[in-house]
Write a protein that binds this DNA or RNA. Sequence first.
DNA 1: ATGAAAGCGCTAACAC
DNA 2: GTGTTAGCGCTTTCAT
Lengths: 335, 335
Amino acid sequence: MKKQVTIKDIAQQLGFSVSTVSRALKDHPDISIKTREAVKQLATLLGYRPNRIALNLKNSKTNTIGLIIPEVEHYFFSSIINGIEEVAYENNYYVMVFQSNESYMREVLNLQALATNRVDGVLASFSKETHNFSHFNQIIDYEIPLVFFDRVVNDMHADTVVSDDFHGAYLAVEHLIKRGCKNIALYSSPRHLQISQGRHDGYKKALEDNGMTYNTDLVYSCDTFEDAMKISRSILKKQNRPDGVFAVNDMTAIGVLKVAKELGIKIPEELKIAGFENSRSSKVVDPELTTVDQFGFDLGKKAAALLLKRINDQDFTYEPENIVIKPKLVVRKSS
Amino acid sequence: MKKQVTIKDIAQQLGFSVSTVSRALKDHPDISIKTREAVKQLATLLGYRPNRIALNLKNSKTNTIGLIIPEVEHYFFSSIINGIEEVAYENNYYVMVFQSNESYMREVLNLQALATNRVDGVLASFSKETHNFSHFNQIIDYEIPLVFFDRVVNDMHADTVVSDDFHGAYLAVEHLIKRGCKNIALYSSPRHLQISQGRHDGYKKALEDNGMTYNTDLVYSCDTFEDAMKISRSILKKQNRPDGVFAVNDMTAIGVLKVAKELGIKIPEELKIAGFENSRSSKVVDPELTTVDQFGFDLGKKAAALLLKRINDQDFTYEPENIVIKPKLVVRKSS
DNA sequence: ATGAAAGCGCTAACAC
DNA sequence: GTGTTAGCGCTTTCAT
């Protein structure tokens, strides 16, 4: 990089001191108009750019937020990033992204990098591998505000922003019931993710509220497209196969949908399917997938806004907030 | 944020000078083993984290690369980010993301923010609105290495990394011809994006190489799902409707596919379709979409690696490189 | 209306 | 083997 022009250069060329230049640049009233203009003119002429690094050091403030995310490629996460970037942009903050790639080790290192980089705050959604949260506690020890989104821990000094998984699942399953399903299967993630717990409970409650019995035989541990294709081939061939499927994410639901079509099962007549996410793909399959919109963009915005509020707060002894985004059922042709 | 512990704190508590502590922390051989250990022990005890900002200022180096991207939500772009982050992580670099949201204005501001933040290099794909590139030239003036990816400009002191659009399109169209298409339509983006130019030319060349005539009546300006749905309704109802469609991206191809199904046109028997991107959605539609894989992850990695090389190079007078990623045709059921 | 100087946290050249 | 000091670019207090 070329030697950057500094206020010192401007000062020397104009015969002023650096402090005068510094003040002139920010229109300090003490400085005469004439001087201000001369300074600014030379500044643009020389292509002067204030050096944020110097400011960061001086103010112990970087205007940067660190983002820890499992994987950017996932539609839901990328829409969250979109929301975060939006709010950051509006408030003159910068976003440093770190992917954990669902690796605990990498997440720990990422957090260290964030601390070292002196970000003003952290937005995080932890990896599937993460069961120990002491690396997050370290961040909190430094009094760097932390907001969890989507995948959250509750017994920490950190705010959380999630979508209401329970409610979303409830809506979807209730809908399947209203459409006449008597025998609804659940395709769900490993239980330790709070997310899947909520969706599981919503599923259960919807059944019970409608006089149906919850049956663990209908609960399958499966949350990917590939696995769904695999296990559905046998599930859907059973004598008393389900007449409805609720899956914890769209790709899983689509796996079921595909197999059903292969097997000649009519959707929605013989099998109704609902997913969770409202991804691009859900709009594109045939029949289009009924699903629950999680409003990732919104979630990202809310999380970022809350973080900025914490950053601007004086003291670190705030009571953590738990924001819940109400999801919405999007009814399409698969149900 | 809590007052962070600095080497000065460690020095005072131990009765050493800051320079000794500094050296001890990096295992400088001059320092006695005993001192080194004492220092390191106290450092971990106090939760010391080196302050990168101070280093950044001292070295005029931030180990940060700035990323300007039209929109993170797009699958192709998010897979590029994935590749970039991967390389950055491996090399102890950090990534600051800026979305232009396809807005020229915002892109200009983003570039200023990057310069101000003293990133060591910039990766950029410009917005659809961008026709004037002087903001990029400013970055080059500062001698900040710049690598364009996907959407590139050639007459600049900047490297470029793109997928071979011409070749990809050629493969797809040649394939359609081999499958028997006589009348292939092109759904393409506005011409000024180099991307669509290449894909257009590949389409044309494939036709000509196979003794077919290029006919502008078969070239439609359309590159979104919605538009594709709209215009296809009339195009596919025509007397001499096309028997093949090549679209510059998957979502457009999928729009065509949907309308064809609505109209009862059999795919692939009566109409063969190919897209470009190999998105998630392309695997999920019915019939699955034949498409061209652009290897976004790879492209991101290559772009980042090239940028890091430029950053580490001493002089800025390098000859820009133009890397071309060979795409691959993925044949599926739609053709 | 302007200047001098200290300081943000760290490193490295130069003492001793 | 350890300490002193200047300096990275900027702001700001305290002079003048």
